[in-house]
């Protein structure tokens, strides 16, 4: 009886691991898509409203999901407090605070982290293209991850189920 319950626990644990990995992959894609949306929104604020970066952050914060919403709001508030720091420094500083909450890969985080330095252009088209570039990159990464995820998810689920069975048999 105990052996049966133990086997059930092992199987459930392995399956749960598989499901968790699947959820993490989906969350990763979701965060990439959110980042893409955030950049799209920043871009439209700049293009149509000709809003300054801080104001664009504030407007976008109202439409974005966490953790991006809080991050953008913090960037706006730090700019509004006007301690004299450049936009790039504020952006990096605030992004570092939320980096731990993100499931993005290191190179993906690096892309967002460095965006702050792409500011101070006199020509609105240059600023727009800086935003577009990041937006495109995020879109590309999320499409790639989605494709990768589809094939990976099946393998992960199969492996976790198989792994659970093997482990159970070995222990029995």
């Amino acid at each position: 009886m105990f052996k049966m319950i133990g086997a059930l626990f092992i199987l459930t644990g392995c399956m749960a691991y598989g499901v968790l990995s699947r959820i993490q992959m989906q969350l990763h894609i979701r965060q990439l898509k959110q980042a893409e949306k955030v950049m799209e929104s920043l871009g439209s604020e700049i293009t149509y409203g000709k809003a300054a970066l801080y104001m664009a952050c504030r407007e976008t914060a109202g439409r974005a999901e966490e953790p991006y919403a809080g991050f953008l709001q913090q960037v706006y508030e730090a700019g509004f407090q006007n301690e004299g720091q450049p936009f790039a420094d504020i952006w990096k500083q605030e992004f570092t605070k939320i980096a731990g909450k993100l499931l993005l890969k290191e190179d993906e985080q690096e892309l967002i982290y460095c965006f702050g330095a792409c500011s101070g252009y006199m020509d609105v088209k240059l600023q727009e293209s800086a935003v577009e570039r990041l937006c495109r990159e995020m879109g590309k990464r999320s499409a790639e991850s989605e494709q990768e995820c589809r094939s990976k998810m099946k393998i992960v689920m199969c492996l976790s189920a198989a792994g659970g069975m093997v482990l159970t048999m070995m222990l029995l």
Partner: peptide, 9 residues
Amino acid sequence: CQYSLYAYE
């Protein structure tokens, strides 16, 4: 210009 010169064009 809040690091947004384009906004003050």
